[in-house]
Simulated scan of single mutants.
Amino acid sequence: MRRLTKKKALNLVKELDAFPKIPDSYVESTASGGTVSLIAFTFMAILAFLEFFVYRDTWMKYEYEVDKDFTSKLRINVDITVAMKCQYIGADVLDLAETMVASDGLEYEPVNFELSPQQRIWQLTLWHIQERLRVEHSLQDVLFKSAIKIAPPSPIKNDDRNFHVTVGKSIPHPRGHAHLAALVSHDSFNFSHRINHLSFGEMIPGIISTLDGTEKVSTESNHMFQYFITIVPTKLNTYKITADTHLYSVTERERVINHAAGSHGVSGIFMKYDISSLMIRVTEQHMPLWQFLVRLCGIVGGIFSTTGMLHGMVGFLVDLICCRFQMGIYRNPKETSLAVQENNETSALIENHNEH
């Protein structure tokens, strides 16, 4: 009884077989079929190899949300070269009330404004990278992946809105601050400058900011350069680092100060920035293993199906071009027997007619 039940179960399983086996005696191997199989296996190997590189690659996912952090402090990383002597200029950071909040932390270092040949090559390379970043935004993802983390500088309050470099050293007073510009001759004014680096948040080497490499050369002594910056808080999370940084966009404006012509103002370099209420979360992602296996199965199955259909279509066209249908190879056997019978009957009638 158990054997009968087991046999019925096996027969039921065999009936559910979706992959019936064809005996080898019914299969005919051809040179064209072997060629198509070889081409199919080659394509499978190539596509599987390329798919493996896609699986190894990562991409950056950008998510936007409202910035709910109102207590953190903003770090400013600035490296700027001005074509004036250090004792003639002063730089400081102001808050919304125009109160000086950071001046002593800035370091002044005498350098030559003119670049050496090697420095000029690096400057041109940086300009080229900035141009490509404006066109090909995917390069920014490459910079994010190659970034590393170092210790950040001292933070500054989050409500600071102004960083400027102008004539004379700054002095604080109860109602704000002032610069001792009267002690500097107008002939020594030259606010040609080069922004080597300007970023906000944690210092992350490898990331090129928007104003990095910017160079402005002025032929006038009284010249005002303005940069209106919009800062977007950014949380960067890659397989190498996790950091809180800030991306920014900038609008530039410059004009010559000429009080006689009605162009009033103060000569210098002014950077006014505002912090956006939105936050960007940048996360490096990787293709999961199950998706990679599914894509491989799709490649193998798709190539098998496509090459099979193409082989059948090509064979049909070859047979059609060679007129094999007219040679009776694919003619129906019933039609062939009827045609032979009609020919025999016609021949018999002709012979009888000749005898009479």
Rank of each mutant, 00 (worst) to 15 (best):
K7M: 09
K8G: 06
N11Q: 13
I22Q: 03
V36F: 14
F49P: 01
R56V: 03
Y64Q: 10
K68Q: 08
K68R: 11
K85S: 07
K85R: 07
C86L: 04
Y88P: 01
A91T: 13
D92Q: 14
D95G: 07
L96V: 12
N112G: 05
F113A: 03
L115P: 05
P117E: 06
L124R: 14
L124D: 12
H128M: 14
E131N: 14
L133S: 11
V135W: 09
E136Q: 11
L139R: 06
D141Q: 08
L143E: 11
K149C: 02
I150C: 07
I150S: 08
P152G: 03
P153E: 04
D159P: 04
D160I: 15
K169D: 07
I171V: 15
A178W: 07
S185I: 02
D187H: 13
H197C: 01
S199W: 08
G201R: 06
G206V: 05
L211M: 14
T214H: 11
S221M: 08
Q226C: 02
V232C: 08
V232Y: 08
N237C: 10
K240N: 14
L247N: 12
E252A: 05
F270Q: 05
E284V: 11
P288G: 04
W290G: 00
F304H: 01
M313Y: 10
V318I: 13
V318N: 11
L320E: 09
C322A: 10
C323M: 10
R331S: 15
S347G: 03
L349D: 07
N354T: 04
